[in-house]
Simulated assay, not measured.
Amino acid sequence: MATKQLAASPVKKVAGNLSKYGIYIAFVVMCVFFSIFNPLFLTPGNIINIVRQVSFNAILAMGMTMVIITGGIDLSVGSVLALAAVITASFVKTANPLLPVPVALLIGLLIGAACGLFNGYVITKGKLAPFIVTMVMMTMARGAAQLFTKGRPVTGLLESFDFLGAGFILRIPVPIYILALVVIISHFILSCTKTGRYIYAVGGNEQAAAASGIKVRRVKLVVYTFSGVMSALVGIILTARLNSASPVLGNGYELDAIAATVIGGASMDGGKGKVIGTLVGALIIGTISNGLDILNVSAYWQQIIKGIIILVAVLLDKKD
């Protein structure tokens, strides 16, 4: 009996390590695979290109991670992104000494915060499912963006504004620096603050968290507001990169943000998830897209492959 237990221990240890480091191993294997079939994949230029493309989804996924850890979900991020983008672009277009560009950016971030706060308030006060509330916000924000612009894109923005999305510092795109800052802030909140501990506690067992004195409502308001701000931030960066804002911007982005979070190890049941895991999840999605593009794989097949990866990640989560 003792021999069997000793024999089983190494197996369990290996299985535990695979579960813990599986996504990192998968990411490395994926990079090696694509580099074998195309030497251009691991060139510095392509690596920077991948990270820049990933930065938008990864920033969105930081907010989504906190929401999912509490046991919720935010389907409105793509639409809130568009609403904040078109409003910010409109103010940037008419920027003047009384309303400079920084104020326009702040207005955009406040729009995202207001949408997130609304989600959190209705979910907690109305005791409604996050899926329903954020789906309603998804529809409302998209409609508001269409109404605000009358269905037309906002163009003719100031060239100085482009720096946020298309500029470089020491040959590194500015969005990558913004992503690094967001990752540091998100990691600090979740790992080094009382709010972070409360977020995990609420996702682990909401009733127990409330019984222990944690203000569950306040925690949910914080995470949904943070998600809204991240959505607005991505909308602003994308607008600066494209030098225009469209009311259809960010359509479907919520799916990639959820995928990055789940692939990164966050549990849809709540109570589990890490910022670094989410970042790697976003990198995996970006690497797949970039690698398959280089190999000239159809965009339709890419969607199928992404769907399979998400399904496998969810199934592995359920097994844990």
Score class of each variant (00 low, 15 high):
A2L: 14
Q5M: 12
P10M: 01
V11S: 13
N17L: 15
Y24N: 09
I25D: 07
I25F: 08
A26I: 12
V28A: 13
C31D: 03
F33V: 15
I36G: 06
N46R: 08
V51W: 04
Q53M: 06
L60Q: 02
T65R: 02
M66P: 10
M66L: 12
V67C: 04
I68Y: 00
D74P: 00
L75M: 13
L75Y: 15
G78N: 06
A85M: 07
S90G: 14
K93I: 07
A104K: 03
F118K: 00
G120W: 00
P130E: 13
P130N: 06
F131K: 02
A145D: 02
L147G: 09
L164S: 10
G165L: 10
F168S: 11
I169T: 13
V174Y: 01
I185Q: 01
H187P: 05
H187Q: 13
Y200A: 00
R218G: 05
V219C: 03
Y224G: 02
V229F: 01
V234N: 05
G235D: 09
L238P: 11
A240W: 11
R241K: 12
P247I: 15
V262D: 11
I263C: 03
G265K: 04
K274H: 11
V275S: 06
V280T: 10
G286Y: 01
I288K: 07
S289H: 12
L292Q: 02
Y300F: 12
I304C: 15
K318S: 10
K319R: 14
K319T: 12
